[in-house]
Computed example of a mutant assay.
Amino acid sequence: MTVDYVMHYSSPRQADEWEARHAAGEVPGRWLYGLDRLADDERIGELSVGYLDDWSMRRRLRAAQLLLTSPPRLRSDSPVHLTWDERNALKLITAQREPGAHWTGLIWLTDDVARAPKSRRVRIRNRLLRGISGAWVLSSGQLEVARDLLGSDIPVRLVRFGIDTDFFQLPTAGSPPRKLIVSFGNDRDRDTATLYEAMELVARYDPLAEIVVQTNSNLPVPDGVRRIDRVPHPELRDMYQRASVVVLPTVYNLHFSGMTAALEAMACGAVPVVSDTPGVLDYVRDQVDGFVVPVGDANAIAQTVLDALASPGDLAQLGTNGRDKVHQHHNHRTLSKSLLSAIEGCES
């Protein structure tokens, strides 16, 4: 028996326009997060796309108030509705779409709960999300908080994230000698202050190293560091391919901030340096396919980078290990398979 699935994106820009850009070689994945690969599974009947309204905040609050007393339970045999994160999940719930099981990813909410469990925002989202059929998280560090949040009646499963390994891969030509250090990312849990402090130390002790940081932070850029704005995906891939290490320090968080950049870098043969937060070891193993350093420790980051640059043979082996792991276990095909197995195991 097959089951129909509907993947809900917030707007056509996240689906139709993304697919057109992918066809032109501009972005990874035919669909955002590669969820078009769900259709490869024989358990899927029809896989289609739904669009969510870009509601005003006033309209969202009004709908939320009406639903707080009795959130709908969207359960039936078919179809299964999917939303990638809790923001789109709340849109789907308050829109009261046609019946069907509703599964969603949880990304930011677990950290919101851990940091401010009694806030009004958390309480409202918590009540509304009790209308879903199940949820998945991408980091094992989120599991306990998510299960406590949703209660025993709503299953929460761990799904292994993956990236487009056809887009992010080693260069076709041989890799040039590497002494490029890069950092990419703007999400709220990136620790730019610690990153800058560490990179200033690296530049001081290794003036030949090229250091490039992509960030929207307004902090002063230290000497020896070049700051850039957001870059197109093909240019991002090129920088991963030329980099020795990709440095991704974060504050403490449960969802593994920097996960996407770490996997993209590994797919291209670069070695990630990530902060030791819950769930990191799901993706990066210290001194096996990357480096894991204490949260907020600029000296440890700098020393790790300098030691890595001083041992190019060892660094190359870590790069090979990481590339092999991502291409085998963290691609769009494995992501879709992991997600579908989590849902089917609970819905059957």
Rank of each mutant, 00 (worst) to 15 (best):
N321W: 06
A114M: 10
A203W: 00
A15M: 05
D314F: 06
T104Q: 03
S10Q: 12
C268G: 04
D85P: 00
D54Y: 09
R97V: 13
E235M: 13
L38D: 00
D164N: 09
N299D: 15
V182G: 00
D41S: 09
N218C: 07
R160C: 05
D166H: 10
L318P: 00
L281E: 15
D206V: 12
D85C: 07
A300H: 02
Y283S: 02
K325D: 11
T250A: 09
A298R: 10
R87K: 10
G105D: 14
N186T: 15
R60D: 11
L52A: 00
V293E: 04
A198M: 09
S175M: 14
T165A: 06
S78A: 14
L150K: 13
D187P: 00
H255I: 11
R130F: 02
V213G: 00
V295L: 05
P272N: 11
E200A: 14
V213T: 01
V3I: 15
I44H: 06
H332W: 09
S336K: 06
D189H: 15
P234E: 01
N253A: 06
E98Y: 08
G224P: 01
F256M: 03
D111F: 12
L281F: 06
H8E: 02
V213L: 06
D164L: 05
E17P: 04
E144P: 04
G25H: 11
S175K: 08
D297A: 11
G319P: 02
A316M: 04
D314C: 07
D153C: 06
A95P: 05
R190G: 08
M1T: 12
P79I: 07
R204T: 12
E344H: 11
D36K: 10
D16G: 03
I163H: 01
I343K: 07
E197G: 13
P176M: 09
Y283G: 01
T277Y: 09
L129D: 06
R97C: 10
R43G: 06
L281D: 14
K179V: 03
L318M: 08
P99W: 08
P232A: 09
L82T: 08
E264C: 06
L106E: 11
I93L: 15
S152L: 11
V212P: 04
L339G: 04
V326N: 02
L170K: 01
A243V: 01
P176Q: 11
L208W: 01
I124D: 01
S48M: 10
L47C: 03
L306K: 04
L195D: 01
V271F: 02
S48V: 15
S217Y: 02
R226W: 07
N88P: 00
L52P: 04
E210C: 05
D282S: 08
L74E: 11
A135S: 10
A243I: 04
L281K: 13
L82S: 03
T304A: 06
Y283K: 01
V284N: 04
G29I: 10
M1R: 14
L309Y: 02
A270R: 01
A173R: 12
D314T: 14
R130I: 05
L32M: 09
S139D: 11
Q96T: 14
V221L: 05
A23C: 03
L180Y: 04
L248Q: 07
M259W: 08
T192V: 15
D289N: 15
S140L: 08
R230S: 13
S70I: 03
H332K: 03
R323S: 14
V231C: 09
